[in-house]
Simulated assay, not measured.
Amino acid sequence: MTYLELTTGGKDTAQAISLAATEILRSRMLTPLGHHGFRVLTEAMREVRDVNQGSAE
């Protein structure tokens, strides 16, 4: 078994990437969709998940 630990610099980099990814997702997808569009998208994703879970059995 191997254990890894991020250095302080690695943690800072990971946090910066996470913040950038969140901002990109928000500006390019969530904001243009709006609340209604996001709701429709989440319902569709749940349906896909449910179908995929049923096919895995």
Score class of each variant (00 low, 15 high):
Met1Lys: 02
Thr2Asp: 07
Tyr3His: 06
Tyr3Glu: 03
Tyr3Lys: 04
Leu4Lys: 03
Leu4Gln: 05
Leu4Ala: 04
Leu4Trp: 01
Leu4Gly: 00
Glu5Phe: 00
Glu5Leu: 04
Leu6Pro: 06
Leu6Cys: 03
Leu6Met: 10
Leu6Asn: 08
Leu6Gln: 10
Thr7Pro: 03
Thr7Asn: 04
Thr8Ile: 08
Gly9Thr: 06
Gly9Ile: 00
Gly9Asn: 12
Gly9Ser: 08
Gly10Ser: 02
Gly10His: 04
Lys11Arg: 15
Lys11Glu: 14
Lys11Pro: 01
Asp12Cys: 03
Asp12His: 07
Thr13Ser: 07
Thr13Asp: 07
Ala14Lys: 12
Ala14His: 08
Ala14Gly: 05
Ala14Gln: 13
Ala14Ile: 02
Gln15Thr: 11
Gln15Leu: 11
Ala16Pro: 10
Ala16Thr: 14
Ile17His: 09
Ile17Arg: 12
Ile17Lys: 14
Leu19Pro: 00
Leu19Trp: 02
Ala20Leu: 14
Ala21Met: 13
Ala21Trp: 04
Ala21Asn: 13
Ala21Pro: 00
Thr22Asn: 14
Thr22Val: 05
Glu23Asp: 15
Glu23Gly: 10
Glu23Tyr: 03
Ile24Ser: 06
Ile24Cys: 05
Arg26Val: 07
Arg26Glu: 15
Ser27Ala: 15
Ser27Tyr: 02
Arg28Ile: 09
Arg28Pro: 00
Met29Pro: 00
Met29Asp: 06
Leu30Ile: 13
Thr31Ala: 15
Pro32Gln: 07
Pro32His: 07
Pro32Lys: 03
Pro32Val: 04
Leu33Lys: 09
Leu33Thr: 07
Leu33Asn: 08
Gly34Tyr: 04
Gly34Thr: 02
Gly34Phe: 04
Gly34Ala: 07
His35Arg: 15
His35Ala: 15
His35Ile: 06
His36Met: 08
His36Leu: 11
His36Asn: 09
Gly37Phe: 12
Phe38Leu: 14
Phe38Gln: 12
Arg39Leu: 06
Val40Lys: 10
Val40Cys: 01
Leu41Gly: 03
Leu41Ala: 14
Thr42Asp: 03
Thr42Leu: 13
Thr42Lys: 11
Glu43Arg: 13
Glu43Tyr: 02
Ala44Ile: 11
Ala44Glu: 11
Ala44Pro: 00
Arg46Leu: 10
Glu47Asn: 02
Glu47Thr: 08
Val48Tyr: 03
Val51Gln: 06
Val51Ser: 03
Val51Ile: 13
Asn52Glu: 11
Gln53Gly: 02
Gln53Asn: 10
Gln53Cys: 05
Gly54Asp: 09
Gly54Pro: 00
Gly54Ile: 01
Ser55Val: 06
Ser55Lys: 09
Ala56Thr: 05
Ala56His: 03
